[in-house]
């Protein structure tokens, strides 16, 4: 079942002579358990696409459906609720609240939804444990490394059990090793927990973790590559590759 479905999604900023078409008739589908990377040069509209998918911005034209529900014309309150329950966000700068500890940060979406604090905490701790942060539960963001902070942010994105995770350059602020960890974690989120994950990135290395890469250029889809899961041909491929690199 498709979690995201857009038809001819168009976003134009400004009007008249200064109008800029950030997104031009983009139609995509993302299914449950699918991990999609959105790539493209800066200014290609990849962030705009993510914002529209998350209901953070409204399209100029076209339709978006999240979980089968059209959201293009939703009022602010309904969008707020949608964000709270159906979508998890992961940002480049983690955006944890500096005065709250890991558990409190991870619990935020459900706390905001009015879930009892003890219950919200319990759920947050579950996710943090899954992500290997069991020993950092009471740490404040400034006591955590970038990778740890981003893991807290991913736990936060999942705590309300949304079907869709939107990640905007989740590794943009991390070193290579932490980037790999986070990308692997996002893949795990889609494969083991069955969420649809849409990630905007400019890093090929990170994009390679996805099942599918959508290339945007000048606001429209330039190319799309489906990455086959590892198969029998793999060994041969790697060996062939070594020939190229090595002796």
């Amino acid at each position: 079942m498709s979690i995201i479905s857009t038809q001819n999604l168009t976003k134009i900023y400004g009007s008249g002579d200064t109008a800029v078409t950030a997104l031009d008739h983009v139609s995509i589908e993302v299914n449950a358990g699918e991990f999609v990377a959105v790539m493209g040069p800066s200014g290609c509209g990849k962030s705009t696409l993510l914002h529209l998918l998350g209901g953070l911005d409204s399209p100029s034209d076209g339709a978006i459906a999240i979980d089968g529900k059209p959201i293009a014309k939703m009022p602010d309150n309904a969008l707020t609720e949608l964000r709270r329950r159906k979508i998890g966000f992961v940002f480049q700068f983690y955006n944890l609240i500096p005065v709250l500890n890991a558990v409190e940060n991870a619990a935020l979406p459900v706390t905001l939804d009015g879930v009892k604090p003890s219950e919200a905490k319990k759920r947050a701790i579950e996710w943090l444990n899954r992500f290997g942060l069991g020993d950092r539960l009471n740490s404040r963001p400034d006591q955590l490394s970038g990778g740890q902070q981003q893991r807290v942010a991913i736990a936060r994105a999942l705590v309300a059990e949304p079907n869709l995770i939107l990640a905007d350059e989740p590794t943009g602020n991390l070193d290579t090793r932490a980037s790999d960890e986070i990308a692997a974690l996002l893949r795990k989120v889609s494969k083991e927990f069955g969420r649809a994950v849409v990630m905007v990135t400019h890093d090929p290395r990170i994009a390679a973790y996805a099942d599918r890469i959508i290339f945007l250029k000048d606001g429209s889809i330039a190319d799309e590559t489906i990455l086959e899961p590892q198969n029998g041909k793999n060994a041969a491929m790697v060996a062939g590759m070594m020939k190229e690199i090595g002796d």
Binding site: G54, T80, F89, F91, N95, I97, P109, L112, D113
Partner: peptide
Amino acid sequence: RRDIGMLRALGASRRT
């Protein structure tokens, strides 16, 4: 500003 924007993104209403 960013904390607030983030809270809004996470589903905090204006009233919150």
